[in-house]
Design a protein around this nucleic acid. Structure first.
Lengths: 220, 220
DNA sequence: GATAGTTTCATACAACTGTTTGAATTGCAA
DNA sequence: TTGCAATTCAAACAGTTGTATGAAACTATC
């Protein structure tokens, strides 16, 4: 029996409880009860509650990021260093959407945890998210190579909007279902991915002269 | 001297502290110290901490919603019941963006509070947000009238994406600035509004007759 | 100016939090 | 086995939190 039995029991219990009930009202005592270990074990194995949360989030994050980069790399290699913008965007938002949407009953604990992390923002997770910039820069680079005529500003805005649509859809999936009375089917993940990719592509490829004049007349 | 001096002092202090430091680490004792009132005053005047937060958020929300609906009503009346989709979208995302973006030093406490409320989601605020659906339905209705050929599903997705871009840009404005190394100028609010409106318009009109849209051709 | 109602105040309460402690237990090597 | 380190455990700690209490201070009405 591996000596880290306690450690992984805590991780599993914590992820499950956080996913179900949110960070707000899950205490260390809840976690150790669920994991059938002693209260002190958390501090012994992780140092602090925040480090436990951070480890959970980091683990899931790097898994997603790796998946994104894998898709990106494949696409760029296939295109001789330049991938179509749609494919880049799909690599950016696909893994996250696929991980977090889909039929509720078959949504993994990991996915539900990541949704929580996206809805309820807690300090240890925010700190980690701030370090994600380097990761996004790689995508900005790929997008620039794919659309060399496009200004940097437009690239960044396109990236921002793509992430916006993906993350917001995950965060507010429940509300969108209710608002649309079920007409928007969030279980059809590939359809959601294509919608996001298609709009983001339009944002990045439409209307050339759009970017520079902030003093344009705003119709009113 | 008005008898609600204490009440409004608490509201003002709470909004300021929450805006500056977030909900997580502002206690009732911080608030009453800032407001120079007694600790018990919060429970006396508001019932509980959560009700205080709720009152703050509700006040600001209905102000924004009223502004949105005012813009929408003006536009629809001018168009004889049908407003151009761009104008509807501008009424939807304009007030929020104008309230929350802009030069940091001239951002109101109210705006900074609303940004906090958007970043750190706490239970009393989440409960209120869930009741916002009726408000959004009004916009969905206006959009349907503006684009009668469009399916409901497409309308809801367009609405969802418009809100996504606006809210995400507010939430992650700092990160976008850092990622773009300042190239994306979030202080030019009207430029941001036009970017969001333009992309959302494309999302809603692409692949259909562009007859009425004065916007540029959406490449695809 | 006494009275009734509201508001303020200092203080205590009760519960819960993450963390620490130091002794017991376990697993493993010599 | 003996010795030693790693782990587990019950218990307590120290701090904070939101809330409740009951007396005091006001305010306005009669």
């Amino acid at each position: 029996m591996p000596s880290d039995h306690t450690r992984s029991a805590i991780l599993a219990a914590a992820e499950r409880l956080y996913a179900d009930r949110g960070f707000g009202d899950v205490t260390l005592r809840d976690i150790v009860a669920e994991a059938n270990v002693n209260l002190a074990a958390v501090n012994y194995h992780f140092g602090s509650k925040d480090e436990l949360i951070a480890e959970l989030f980091v683990t899931r994050s790097i898994a997603t990021n790796r998946e994104r980069l894998r898709e990106l790399k494949t696409a760029e290699e296939a295109g001789g260093g330049r991938a179509p913008i749609e494919v880049i965007l799909r690599a950016l938002v696909g893994p996250t959407l696929r991980g977090c949407l889909g039929p509720e009953n078959q949504r993994s604990t990991a996915a539900r945890f990541m949704i929580r992390a996206s809805i309820e923002s807690v300090p240890p997770i925010r700190r980690i998210k701030n370090r994600e910039i380097d990761h996004l820069r790689k995508f900005a680079g790929a997008m620039r190579r794919s659309l060399p005529d496009r200004s940097d500003v437009d690239i960044y805005w396109g990236l921002n909007f793509a992430l916006a649509m993906a993350h917001h859809t995950i965060r507010e999936s429940e509300r969108l279902t209710k608002l649309s009375e079920g007409k928007c089917n969030l279980d059809d993940v590939e359809d959601v991915v294509e919608r996001v990719v298609s709009v983001a592509t339009m944002a990045l490829t439409a209307g050339r002269t759009e970017a520079k004049a902030p003093s344009k007349v705003a119709a009113r």
